[in-house]
C-alpha cells in the first residue's frame, strides 16, 4: 500500500457513515495529501468511487484485504 498522511478506520460503520466520516477527515487535510480509509461495509466500494467522481478527490486505490476494504483518497 502506498503512503498516506492520515488513517480513518470506519470498520463496522454502515452507509452513509464511512462517506460522511471520510468527508470530514478530508476537510482537515491539505491538497495532495492522502487519506487511508478502512471499511467493512461492502457498499462502500461503489460509494467511494461515486464520492470521488462527484467531489473531484482522487480514489488512488481501492482493494479488499482480509475481509476489509481499503481506500486511498487523495485530496484535490
Amino acid at each position: 500500500m502506498a503512503d498516506f498522511d492520515q488513517e480513518l478506520d470506519a470498520s463496522g460503520l454502515n452507509c452513509p457513515l464511512p462517506i460522511l466520516r471520510a468527508k470530514k477527515a478530508l476537510a482537515a487535510l491539505s491538497e495532495g495529501q492522502v487519506l487511508h480509509i478502512i471499511a467493512t461495509d461492502p457498499g462502500a466500494v461503489k460509494d467511494f468511487e461515486a464520492f470521488a467522481k462527484q467531489t473531484g478527490n482522487e480514489l488512488v486505490e481501492s482493494r479488499e484485504e482480509g475481509g476489509k476494504f481499503h481506500f486511498l483518497m487523495k485530496k484535490h
Binding site: C15, P16, I19, L20, K23, F51, Q54, T55
Partner: peptide, 11 residues
C-alpha cells in the same frame, strides 16, 4: 436525513 447529509457531503 441520510440523503440530506450525504448530498451535503458531496457538495
Amino acid at each position: 436525513l441520510i440523503l440530506g447529509s450525504t448530498a451535503a457531503a458531496l457538495g
